[in-house]
Design a protein around this nucleic acid. Sequence first.
DNA 1: CTGGGGATGGGGCCC
DNA 2: TGGGCCCCATCCCCA
Length: 550
Amino acid sequence: MANCMVFNAQIASIMEVLANAAVAEICKLVDDDYAVFRLEITQSQKENRALRRKLQLLELKVARERVCASRLSSVKIPDRYRGMARGEGHLTGGHRSFVKLAGHNTWRDDQPITVDEGSGTSTQNIIMIEAAGPGVKQERTEGEKEPQHSTDIQTGAAAGVVPPVATEELSTASTLQSRTRCSIKEASRTPNAILKSETVTETQRLLQTGSDHRSDPERLELGPLGCPALGSEYLLDGNPSPRTVHSHRDSGDVLETGNDPSCSYTTEMDPGNMSLGLETQTDLSRGDWNRYSSSVYSEGCLDKKGEVIVVDKVKVEGDAPPTWNVDETHLGEGHSQGRDFLDYRESLETNTNITTHSPLHAIRDREPVSTSMGPSDSHDRVLFHQVFNSNDSARAQTQGGGATSGNSKEKRFLCMFCSKGFSCPQKVEIHQRVHTGVKPFSCTQCHMCFAQACNLKRHQRVHTGVKPFSCTQCHMRFSHSSSLKRHQTVHTGEKSYSCPQCEKRFSHQHQLKMHLKVHMGERQFVCTQEVLREVPPQDTPAEKTFHSIT
DNA sequence: CTGGGGATGGGGCCC
DNA sequence: TGGGCCCCATCCCCA
């Protein structure tokens, strides 16, 4: 009996030892696996980052090449503009950057082109800006033939300004842009300047390491410190320093000397002037910014849609003082908001330390995320829009390719990118996020970002599970009002999507889409686009959808 | 069919 | 009264 008990005790002890050993082994395995797992995760993350960078670079290259190709075939700057473009005109500074924009992909390699994290925003908006210039110039100079414009330009050239010298558009653009960058760097006061500096730096690196010729300082005509090698006429402008000079004197002189050829730009704010002859540094009034942004943004829409910009909406006909003269007065009161706004936006556009998608980045920074702009920024913004869209909306429509739909009186606030009209600045601001990729509203529960607060609000139902829209015909509930509406076609039997090839109708777009593939196969159409173009446009929802899916 | 994001238009509120 | 702003409804589109 005693032996039995001893034996049992021994067995128990052995079992315990074995159990402990087993546990230790398991723990070790778990730890090892965990370490391996973590390592794999880390490596995967690194790979993802690398791939993402490559993707960004590729996108950028593709866009640039596309823009470059289109420009090479269409860009043409009248000689009378070239001189101004090079800063040889009577004006100094900043707006040369427009020329840059108009030039061949002269967006600097260190341009803060970034991809909005989590939002999938790419550099397209910037590309659009790059693409814009030539179109504007071409439209204005070849299409509109505006007499006053020509007069101003010529007057400027005749007024002792260094005659235009044939120059490479690219170099001009580069020079201007570079110069702007120099000033912007100092002017930057963006609250979020450092927020994504790492991303920016990475983007810069990618851009710099790319094969893009723009990274070549010589081609950019950069002088020391990365600033452009300025022409003598530029240096004599009274703005020797690339630093932005918010001198009221500059603009004031211009305004006071009515006969001064340089005044031509004060009363003429068409794209040609703005893009080629104006210097932001010279006049940092809001008006100038208006011109600036007008040029830039409207240019941006040109390459994209071949539309003309509404830039010259700021233009004041006849002898009336330009709209921005009022702003100048405003500046003269010591009010720096306009200037700040300008600097701010300039810096956003050019400062490499700022993560931005475009000059409009400023808008994002001022939005839900509170910034230093304060109430005045709103004023500036509105003022900008009002000035920008103040006159000649009809012409804007013409130039803008009719993007301003409906009553232009109601929609007098135009998008700087596509010149589409909106009823109020706020809507323009929101709309422009389409171009800028700005998504200020981020979900606290996931990585999603949204351009509109309401969309974020709607999105959050995904997390909350709230489905406020319930079908009265069944138990179905939806988080999306449109989903409910669409769902109800199940009950109503409504089939609003009709096939243009046959008589079949469908309740959902996807059904029609799939159905169309049948026709494609039957007819052996080579190109879907061609097939779809055969269908005459109609106003019924089905046909609309049909066209849209083409 | 459904889920869900992108984007626009309109209305209401406030200043 | 008008403008700015916010919110909502809605359409479109894609997965």
